[in-house]
């Protein structure tokens, strides 16, 4: 079962990408809240950017998840 064990380790390692995604999401939303606190009137203008940023950042984590799934299930 050596290969099986390596699969799990690999899948676990793949999820290390979440480190970066966590930092990224933290940065993103800290930026949003600072901007919103400084200029609450402009909040509607940030909405599109925040969704794009959120989707792009989160996608990185999900790519890692897909890799993990690929390692586990194929």
């Amino acid at each position: 079962m050596e290969a099986e064990a390596a699969k799990f380790i690999g899948a676990g390692l793949a999820m290390l990408a979440l480190l970066g995604v966590g930092i990224g999401l933290g940065n993103l939303f800290s930026g949003l809240y600072q901007a919103a606190a400084r200029n609450p009137a402009a909040i509607p203008a940030y909405r599109t950017f925040i969704f794009i940023g959120f989707a792009l950042t989160e996608a990185a984590g999900l790519f890692a998840l897909v890799i993990a799934f690929l390692i586990l299930f194929s």
């Binding site: 989707a55 996608a59 999900l62 790519f63 998840l65 897909v66």
Partner: peptide, 13 residues
């Protein structure tokens, strides 16, 4: 690729 994988991975996960 990123456009499709994003949606697929979100739904899958």
């Amino acid at each position: 690729v990123s456009l499709s994988v994003r949606l697929f991975a979100n739904m899958l996960a």
